[in-house]
Design a protein around this nucleic acid. Structure first.
Lengths: 331, 331
DNA sequence: CTCAGGACTGCAACCAGTTGCATGAAACAC
DNA sequence: GTGTTTCATGCAACTGGTTGCAGTCCTGAG
C-alpha cells in the first residue's frame, strides 16, 4: 500500500539500487537521473522507510530519552530542547517516563535499545552497576549523574548551592536547613556536599532534613520539621519542594520571607509564577538537553569521527535572587 | 554483534522459524521445545528486533505523540499518562514538539508516519484540510479538536466555562472579560462560545480580549487592556495566562481577588502553587491521554476488532474554586 | 589504436525477522 | 493395515531498503 523504493524504480525506469542511492549517496548517481528519480518520488509521495533502512545500516536514527518524571517541571524544558536538537540532526526521539522506578527504568532501556542508536539518561535512579552492564548494549549519555568512563553532562549545582549559602549568610542568617531529594539523586548529593562545605566555612549551622519526595508534597511534609528546627533559611532540593515548604510554613503561620528565607533549585515555571517569587538556583536545562544530544550523536558516530570517547561536560548554574529570601529579621 | 534469532536457533538446534514462533505464536510450538528455546534465548540475552518485525508485519508497535509545546504545563501530565498507557500495551511512543508551528507539525507527521502505527495529535494547530489529507497515511486520534469522521477525545471545557461564568455571576460580578488563546485553538473557541452564551443568559457584560499568546507573557501583555476595561472578573484561556495576568495587574496596583477575580483553565501545577491559589477549570488531561491511546490502538486494530471506526469522547471538566475569585467588592 | 581509469548503473546478497506451505511423525478412526 | 487428522517443525519467499562487486560506456593518455 505504501509507496516503496521499487514503485519509484519502476515508475522512473531505473533499478532500485539507483533509487536507493539517490537518497543515501546522491553523489554516486548522475545528476540528470537523480533529478528525474526525485521528481518521480515526489510525485508518488515516496518516503523512505527508516525501519527498513535501519535493518541494513544498523542506524535507526532514533534516540531514547529516559526521565524519572515527565510531570516534574524540571524535565519538560530539557525534553523540548533535546527533541528539537535531535530533529535538527534528523533524529526522532522516544520519550519514556520511569515513575522514579529503577526496575522500570532498566526494563525500558532493554526494550528500547534495539530501536535506538543511543539513550539519554536523565537523572537516572539506576545503580551504577546496572548502568555499567547496560552500556554494552547501547551508547549512553547521562545527565546529572557522575559515572566514570561514560559521557556525562552535569549541571554544576554544587557551585550554585555554594553561592546560595553565601547569599543566605550575607543576609545574616546563622542557622539554615537543607531539604534533600531522593536517595539515588546525584544532584541532591552535590547540593548537600556543597552546602555542608560552604556552611562550615562561613560558620553557619546546617540542619539536613531528608530524603524528601521531589514534589510539593515533599516540601509540605517537611514543613513541620523545618518549623521545629528553628532555622531562618532553607535550601530545597528543587522548586517544587520549596513551594510546598512555603505553603506548609504558611499554614503554620510562618511567613516567607519574613520569618524564613527559602531557596529552590531549577528555576522552573511554578517558581517564576509563585508569590513570593522564588529565589532559586538556575539550571541550564535546555543547554544540557542540546549538549547531551550532540554528545550522544558524537558517541554514536564513534571515535573514528574524532569525538572524544568519553567526556564530562560541566555546565554552570547560577543564583537567581527574587523575593523568597530576605535579610534575617533582627528579633 | 547483537544476538539474533539465528544465533538462538543455532544454539538450541532448531530452525529460525521455530524460534520466531516461540515468541510470536507460542501455541504453535511444542511446550518442551518452547521452554528450551526460551532458556537459550534468555541465556544469550536475546531481544527481538522490533524494526525487523515491523518490516514483515507492518506493525511497528510505536506511536507518535505530537504536541504544540512540551514546556506548556498542560501537556506533561497528558504525555505522561499516554506514554504509561502505551507501555502497558507494549507500545513505545515518539514525542515531538511543534513549537506551535503548523508547517513543522505537518513535516513531523509525514516523517514519523512510516515509523509508527498511529499518531496522537494534541491540540493541533494544523488546518482541518491538511489533517484530512494526512489521515490517509496513518491512523489518527485527535485530542481537543473537533473533526468529523475522525476519532477525537474532547475535554468539555465549554461546560466548565459555563459553570465558571455562573460562579462569577453568583459572586455578584456584572462585567467580565475573556482572554482568548491562539487563533487555531478549538479549546479557545469552545470557551468563547460558552462564555458568550452563558453571560448573555445571566445578564453579564462580556469583553473579549485576544488572541493572546498561551503563556504567562500573553497574560502579562493583556493586563493593560484588562485594567482599562473596568471589568471585575476575568476568565483566561489557561492557567499560565491567568498567572501572567495576575502578575500584570499587581504591577498596576490591581489586587486579585480583591479588585478583580481571575479564573484559569487546566488546573496545572503553577496554578496550584501560586498565591493566591488559582480558581480554575479542571481538565482531565491524564484520562484524556489514556483514553486517546486506547482509542488509537482500537483504530489501529481495525474495525474488524469490533472497534467503532470513529468516536467522539467528551470528558467532563469542572470548576475548582480556590482563592483567586471573590464576591465583588461593594465599592 | 589500445589500454587505463572513471562515472554510472544493474545484479544479487544481505539485514532480522514472519509466515504460507510442505513434510514427517504420531494419533486416531475405521 | 490403511487413510485421515493433528501437531510440530523445516523450507523458502518476502518485507524495504543498502551495498560490494561487476559490467558498460566514455574519455583521455600513450
Amino acid at each position: 500500500m505504501a509507496v516503496t523504493i521499487r514503485d519509484v524504480a519502476r515508475a522512473s525506469g531505473v533499478h532500485v539500487s539507483t533509487v536507493s542511492r539517490t537518497f543515501s549517496a546522491p553523489h554516486l548517481v548522475n545528476a540528470e537521473t537523480r533529478t528525474r528519480v526525485l521528481a518521480v518520488a515526489e510525485g508518488l509521495g515516496y518516503r523512505p522507510n527508516r525501519a527498513a533502512r535501519a535493518l541494513t545500516t544498523g542506524r535507526t536514527h532514533n534516540l531514547g530519552l529516559i526521565v524519572a518524571d515527565i510531570a516534574n517541571p524540571f524535565f519538560p524544558p530539557l525534553i523540548k530542547a533535546a527533541q528539537a536538537q535531535a530533529r535538527e540532526r534528523d533524529y526522532h526521539v522516544f520519550v519514556a517516563d520511569t515513575d522514579e522506578d529503577p526496575l522500570l527504568e532498566q526494563e525500558l532501556i532493554e526494550t528500547l535499545c534495539k530501536q535506538v542508536d543511543g539513550v539519554l539518561l536523565c537523572s537516572p535512579r539506576l545503580s551504577n552497576r546496572v548502568i555499567e552492564r547496560l552500556r554494552a548494549q547501547v551508547p549512553f549519555v547521562v545527565v546529572n549523574r557522575r559515572l566514570k568512563g561514560l559521557t556525562t553532562v552535569l549541571m554544576d549545582v554544587g557551585q550554585g548551592a555554594g553561592v546560595a549559602v553565601e547569599h543566605v549568610a550575607g543576609l545574616g542568617h546563622r542557622r539554615m536547613a537543607l531539604l534533600t531529594g531522593p536517595a539515588g539523586s546525584w544532584t541532591s548529593g552535590e547540593i548537600r556536599q556543597a552546602a555542608t562545605d560552604r556552611t562550615a566555612e562561613l560558620g553557619v549551622e546546617l540542619t539536613v532534613i531528608g530524603p524528601n519526595e521531589p514534589t510539593e508534597h515533599g516540601g509540605l511534609a517537611a514543613a513541620q520539621a523545618v518549623a521545629a528546627s528553628g532555622v531562618t533559611a532553607v535550601l530545597c532540593y528543587n522548586d517544587l519542594v520549596a513551594l510546598g515548604l512555603i505553603e506548609g510554613l504558611r499554614e503554620r503561620g510562618v511567613d516567607v520571607p519574613g520569618d524564613v528565607s527559602v531557596i529552590g533549585v531549577d528555576d522552573s515555571l511554578p517558581g517564576r509564577l509563585s508569590r513570593p517569587k522564588l529565589t532559586t538556583i538556575t539550571m541550564p536545562t535546555a543547554a544540557a538537553g542540546r549538549m547531551a544530544v550532540d554528545l550522544l550523536l558524537a558517541t554514536i558516530a564513534g571515535p573514528a569521527a574524532g569525538a572524544p570517547p568519553r567526556t564530562t561536560v560541566r555546565l554552570e548554574t547560577g543564583l537567581l535572587i527574587r523575593e523568597s529570601t530576605q535579610r534575617v529579621s533582627s528579633s
